[in-house]
């Protein structure tokens, strides 16, 4: 045993600015818990089919973007609020937070333009942003993601594209889980002043890249062993039920309102 290892370390750390590590860890944790949360979404008897949800959300966003009518925008916002109010409290909080942050950010961005008379945009655009962000968030927080990607098939996207989307989500999770401990390890050993922050961080990113290449090759091999030749078929059949019809009806009404109001 070397002598220094037998002695107790008399060490007072130097200060350093390394909040970037905690921030990276937090954003990675956020992504992971988000992906974990969506896989357990209960799709009960009254769930609307994902294909309808995706189509209607897209329609809503197009209409929002096209509309020049405050009443229409308000109606959509209220309809979305009503939809949000049916969800559980934690989802409500997250969806509203995302919407408000986006709308507030937009408002701040637009504020200077108010001084040269932009009265229209300063009201309309934040409201539109709030509605659009809420609509997407409602979709992504009430639907399992593989149902969403599966629904894209109904819009004539090629199966192979949906396949790539699916494995991307899966690998974001796996690579994320792989690099989270790397960041932890970096933080646990960051006991002083790091003069080469970029080198450390790029070590984490670089290791992640090499790992991802390796994973890709392993996955290829595994898939070829199971007879994959590049074709990927996903089956999906849509059966309408009452909730689907109700959901579509609401969006039809919004569309009519849009056509009426402009």
């Amino acid at each position: 045993m070397p002598e220094w290892l037998l002695k107790e370390e008399q060490y007072e750390p130097l200060s350093d600015r390394d909040s970037f590590l905690d921030k990276s860890i937090l954003s990675l944790l956020g992504i992971l818990s988000r992906i974990r949360a969506q896989s357990g979404i209960r799709t009960g008897k009254y769930a609307v089919h994902a294909a309808f949800k995706v189509a209607c959300t897209f329609l809503l966003i197009v209409l929002l973007s096209l509309s020049k009518n405050l009443f229409f925008i308000l109606t959509v916002n209220v309809a979305l609020l009503a939809a949000i109010s049916l969800l559980s409290a934690d989802k409500i909080l997250r969806i509203l937070k995302a919407g408000f942050v986006a709308a507030l950010f937009t408002l701040v961005i637009l504020l200077p333009s108010a001084f040269w008379g932009n009265r229209y945009g300063i009201v309309m655009i934040p409201l539109k942003v709030f509605a659009a962000v809420s609509a997407v968030n409602i979709l992504s927080r009430t639907t399992e993601w593989r149902d969403v990607t599966g629904a894209l098939k109904s819009f004539f996207l090629p199966d192979i594209f949906i396949f790539v989307l699916d494995i991307t989500i899966r690998y974001i999770f796996m690579l994320g889980e792989f690099s989270l401990p790397l960041l932890y390890a970096l933080r646990l050993r960051s006991v002083g002043k790091n003069n080469r922050k970029y080198a450390s961080l790029s070590g984490v990113a670089g290791t992640m890249f090499i790992k991802s290449k390796e994973m890709a090759e392993e996955m290829n091999a595994a898939m070829e062993c199971r007879g994959f030749t590049g074709d990927y078929r996903k089956s999906s059949r849509i059966r309408m039920n009452w909730t689907d019809s109700g959901y579509l009806l609401i969006h039809m009404l919004l569309l009519l309102l849009f056509l009426y109001l402009g």
């Binding site: 792989f178 690099s179 989270l180 401990p181 790397l182 390890a185 970096l186 646990l188 080198a199 450390s200 070590g203 984490v204 670089g206 290791t207 790992k211």
Partner: peptide, 14 residues
């Protein structure tokens, strides 16, 4: 000091 279960996820230097 903490030695992780998976050493792969602990080494980040070149």
């Amino acid at each position: 000091g903490f030695v992780f279960q998976n050493a792969d996820t602990q080494l980040f230097c070149a």
